[in-house]
Every structure is written in C-alpha cells, then in structure tokens.
Design a protein around this nucleic acid. Sequence first.
RNA 1: CGGGGUGUGGCGCAGUUGGUAGCGCACCUGUUUUGGGAACAGGGGGUCGGAGGUUCGAGCCCUCUCACCCCGACCA
Length: 571
Amino acid sequence: MKLSNYLIATLKEAPSDAETTSHQLMVRAGMIRKIAAGVYNFLPTGLRVFRKVENIIREEMDKAGAIEVMMPFVTPADLWNKSGRGEIYGKELLRFKDRADRDFCLGPTHEEVVTDMVDREVKSYKNLPITIYQIQPKFRDEIRPRFGVMRAREFTMKDAYSFDINEAGAEKSYINMFNAYKSIFDRCGLTYKAVEADSGNIGGSFSHEFMVLAETGEDLVLSCDKCDFAANVETTSIKENTSTVTGGTDLISANEISTPKMTSVDDIANFLKVSSGDIVKTLVLESDDDLIAVLIRGDHDLSLTKLKKFLSVNFLDFASEEVLKKRNIVKGFCGPIDLDIKIYSDNAIKLMTNFITGSNKLDFHSQGVNHDRDFPVESFGDFREAVDGDLCPCDDCVGTLSSTRGIEVGHVFKLGTKYSESMNATFADQDGKEKNYYMGCYGIGVGRVVAAAVEQNNDENGIRFPIALAPFQIVIISTDKKEGESLLKAREVYDFLLNLSYDVAIDDRNENPGVKFKDAELLGIPLQLRIGPKSLAKGLVEFKNRLSGEIIEIDKDNLELIKEKIDELLR
RNA sequence: CGGGGUGUGGCGCAGUUGGUAGCGCACCUGUUUUGGGAACAGGGGGUCGGAGGUUCGAGCCCUCUCACCCCGACCA
C-alpha cells in the first residue's frame, strides 16, 4: 500500500468522549470514528486490523470443522415469539415494522435463526454432529454503550452453534470449540484466561468466558492461588469460612435503638462503633410474582446473578421506591422482624448471632437480632458476591481467591435442548424416533478483540500491536520527501517485498520524517524500514523494531539480506 | 429509565454585565526547511445542536426539543 494514496487519519488529540486507553488510541490512530452512540465507522487501518482478527477466527473455525454460513441481520419477530425469548430479551432487542406492518428485529444473536435453519435442512442423525458459524453484525440496544468498540451497540460477532444427537456429543463439540478458542486467542497474541461463567440471557447449563486481562475490563475474575480455579465474580460460589462466628453464643434479647437519619450500613457502623460485618442489611427485591427480602452481611454485596439462579426466576431487581411505599416498607430502615414477605438469607449470616438490622420503623434499628427466634428464614443460600480473600470453592482445595479485571472477548455455552425444545427442532435418531438437538453456542466479539489487544498492548507512543494483528507488518519510510535516491530506493525495496507478498506499506507521503515515525508508532506497525540520505551515504538502510525499540543497519543493496532480516524480526 | 453534565469550524477549547464570534491543532497557497508530529507569510472554512420566545439587539436570558457524555443495588 502506498500511503500517499491511502487514508491515514491520525489525530494529535483524542476526542473528549474517549475514556479508555484503547478507545483514545483507536480514534487517534484513525482506526474508528463514532457516528452515533455505540455505532462506529471502521476506517481503512481499523478495518485491516479487524480483518486480521476475522481471518484468524475463520481459519481456526474451519480447522475445527465448523461450517461457515451467513444468516440475516434483520430477522422476523416470529422466530423470537416462537422461542419465547422476545419478552425476556426486552429493550435490548431493537424492533421495527416493515412497510406491510410486519414485525422485525435486528438480530442480537442467532440461536433462533440457526435452530430454524438446521431444523429445516437436517433430517437425520446421519448428518450430525454439525457446527455452524458466521461472522456478521449484531445489534443490541445496550443501556449504556461505552469504551468505543469495546461495548458498542452494533458490533461484529463470530457466532457458532453446535448440534449433536446427545449430551456426550455436545460435550465433545464444546471441548472442540473451547480448544479452537484457545488457538484463536493465542494467535492474536493476547494474555487471557478461560473462566467459569454465568450463561445469562442465552440460557443453558454451563459456560466459560475467555477474559483478556486488563485494568479497564468491565468484568471481575476471581482465581485461586493454589489450584487452577478461575471464574467470573457473577458466578463464583462461596465456601464460607466457618471459623468466623460472630456475636457470641449467648443470645441476648432484641431491642430497638434510635438511629435518626442513618440509612446506610456505614452510618450505623460509625454510630454504634461496630464493624459493618456486624450489621445485616435487608434488601427487598421484586421477582417474577412477588417481593422477597434477602439478608446480606453489611460488608458483603448481593449477587443478583446467583440469587436469580437460586430462585429460578426470569426477572429479579431491586424494588422501586413506589413499590416499597405501597407495601409500607421503610427505605433505609428495613429489617427482617415482622416483615411479611419471604426472607432468604446468605450463608454468611448463618454463623452470626446478636446482629444489628433495621427495625422497619423510621429512624430505628434493632440490635441483638437472631434468626429463627426473631424471624423465619425461608432458606439459606449462597447469595453474595465473592471477594478477594474468600476461600476457593473447590473441594479439598485450601487456596484463597484473588481478583483481576478482564475483558470478555469470547464465551462458550452448553445450551442442551433449550432452543430445540422451545422451537420444536428435531432429527430422526437411529431408532427412527424424533429427538431434540443438543446444542451449544460460541461467540467472539471481533471488534472487542481488537480493542482488547490495544488495551493490553500500548505505550506512550501509541499502539504496540502483536505482529499478527498490526495493520501492516512493515512500513518503508522514505525520510526524504523529495524525488531522489531515498524515494527510489524505498520504492525498489517496496516492490521487491510486495512481489513476495509481504504485508508492507510504503510511506511516500509528502511529510517530514518525524510525522511518519510518529504515525508508524501510533498505528503499532511492528517494523519500520527507514531509508534516507543519512544512512544511504554509508550504503545502509535501517530497521526499527516497534516492540524492542532496537535499530539495526543493513547493506542497502542486499535485498536478500533485507528479506532475511525481516523474516527474523517478524518471527 | 433515574440523576448529573456538555453541545461554538474536522479535533481540542475560549467567549466578560446581552452589542453581531476567537485561539491552538488540522486544511489550502507560497517561500524556506527536512531523522522525532517544522518556520514564516498569506488564505479558506461557523444558520454558535434545533425550534420558539424575551429584547432595539441573543453564542450569552427564558421555554421546549434533539444529540452526546458521565454516574446509577451498597440500601432495603
């Protein structure tokens, strides 16, 4: 590529709406531009990187035996009604009507479409197992898109779906994809971790997320210091430390204390000079049909994900103020005593006696509260979020957990028969009977992989792309903008490398050398070949390595040696 | 959705008590430069997000609206 005839849209300053490093750098490098909230243009250099990721994914999927198709971005709402997921997906699903008033939506994922497709085309167990994939845009009307293409509303995803005749087959397909994912992220040069995860809206029984480790990640990953356990905080189960009994063995009687205007755990802890762990907070939530209360230790956080799973409900969220008012629940002073809704209690509370809670009266709390004696508990369970220092949940493991932030770039799920049942998708098995497919689904966010790579690889000069992802692997920089020996030599080497199919660009723009160096570094091109009067006078050209900063000089006329050096440096 | 904030040239910003819009970068022309985002001179580009209103006069005041950004269980 001749950069004199290309679009290098670099900026000195990032727009003020770019917060994270990757967002700022991708905009400054001229890779992306926003055209609406969560909707982006990919400019030429951005697209080149995007394609490299896409190609790696495609190659590895093909190698793993997955079959590429393309399903529509616009899908009929009917399919979503069929699976019953239209309601659950809610506002994230962007719906609209066509001219004949028929309902459509922009596909946020394609389980419905692919299940329908396979059901139409595959009739017999003889055609199974099969794994279908596509690389295609998706649209999710996120509440809050952010961080550039990291969490965009329109984004490109590689989504794959496996169909098997039974559970064991599904397991094999899952492992096959899991391994393909490892190859993909290895080839992308990312530092990542595969962790146990929640399956969220997609549903299903079991899943892993592939997390790129980075400070700005939106997810929290907990890993064990003794074994190889690692999981998203959303799903990490907790082994409570049974030695931390608090409150003493003699039960004291409950009494109310005046706590004017003290609505937070911290207020109460400061006022009573106790630690927040001595306090129990009573959280009131709305679920599918009714309100429920959850007791959580003052210094812990509720995990909505875990509680939702425990209750097996579709909807669960904190009760609104209106609802609380209607039920005469006093915000800020809620407690379990005389509360006429079901009370669930976190396991950490089981060991506590004589604790402090709200008293359901404005400006009053209760101390010396004990469960069972003072209020009934519907059920104890593991409802809180794990934190640094919690025990590893694995059997027989004595390790403790520590947390790191991560960017979820890939997710693999076992779906079982969830969709094949709801959509009545079947094949004829060996015994001639119709059976539901055992499915799995597997996603990778292509743009997010690019952003994650930038987030993980940068310095004060810009992006330090892994060689496999860089927009170009080599840029030949003529440091003299006049038509002359430097430019001629640069063109000669460029033609030579281009003929050998190297991923090479020539910076023949009418710019000062400093501009070209800065752009090459901002864009993260791993190798610069600098050709200018200074070194040519000595009969040399020079390489600069973006990653090591090292500069090497080489005989200007020995093209073979130049080629060898490139091969060596790109290895 | 709730709360907060911001909209002025491509990007980053300034704009006083209301008096008719400016700076840096970028862009164009010329000259000089030429190894780390060059210098000088000249130049182009703005319905001040939009609509309505107040006023002799609105970027500035008022009303509505749109867009974008940030925060949002922490308590119950």
